[in-house]
Simulated scan of single mutants.
Amino acid sequence: MTTIDQRLNALGVELPTPAAPLANYVPAVILGSQLIISGQLCLDASGKLGDAHRGKLGEAVSLEAGQAAARLCAINVLAQAKAALGGDLGRIKRCARLGGFINVVPTFASVPQVMNGASDFMVEVLGDLGRHARSTIGVAQLPLDCAVEVEAMFEIAAT
């Protein structure tokens, strides 16, 4: 069991079955020592979108629910990473970047605070290797009317 798996267990997080793509793309691409994960939605462990994570921040979704949604996205990012790496999360050397898309009303100003739900989770699981570069933007709409979507890039070790 890898250190990452041990930290997930300590947090009580079981990675779900990775979600299948919703359109014509792949969930992950490995380019040399980089693992790029397509945007992941805030689906729960059963693959469902909860009512608390549906809609816009600043309207139907609270800041706290948005942070929880971002955390779910990060969990789904790691589930995709595990699948892409043949089950071996120990190959992750560093989280290089997270990109966050937050479904917001035009006046919502706490977009970075929402994305902290994903960023904080990555640091919880990877320690200092989870500290990453980040972009976060507010958007008018996301697939399935999700509150949050997160994409990622990792540095990985060769097999």
Rank of each mutant, 00 (worst) to 15 (best):
G58C: 10
L57H: 08
G58S: 10
L31S: 15
L98Y: 06
A45D: 13
G87W: 02
S110L: 15
R71N: 04
R91T: 01
A45R: 06
H53M: 11
V105C: 07
P106I: 12
I102P: 01
A74P: 00
G90K: 02
V114W: 01
A84S: 03
R94G: 09
G100A: 13
T107L: 05
L72M: 10
V61T: 13
A52Y: 09
D88H: 05
L63G: 04
A109I: 07
I102S: 11
G66M: 14
Q80K: 13
L78F: 07
L85F: 11
Q80S: 15
G47L: 15
R94P: 11
A52P: 09
A70V: 02
I75L: 02
G66E: 09
C73W: 00
A28H: 12
T107M: 06
K82F: 06
P106K: 07
K56F: 13
A65D: 14
V104C: 15
G55S: 12
A84W: 03
A70Y: 06
I36M: 11
M115T: 05
L63E: 02
T107V: 08
R71D: 04
G58A: 06
A69K: 06
V29A: 14
S110H: 14
A118D: 06
L43W: 08
V105S: 12
L41G: 14
G47E: 15
N116R: 14
N116L: 13
V123M: 08
G55M: 12
Q113L: 12
F108L: 13
A74M: 11
K93S: 08
A69P: 09
V105A: 11
R71M: 09
K48A: 15
S33G: 00
N76I: 07
A60Y: 02
A68C: 08
I30D: 00
S38P: 07
I36C: 11
D88N: 14
S119H: 10
I37W: 00
K56L: 13
A96H: 08
A60L: 10
A81F: 05
N76F: 01
Q113N: 08
A83C: 02
G117C: 07
A45W: 02
K82V: 09
G47P: 09
S33Y: 00
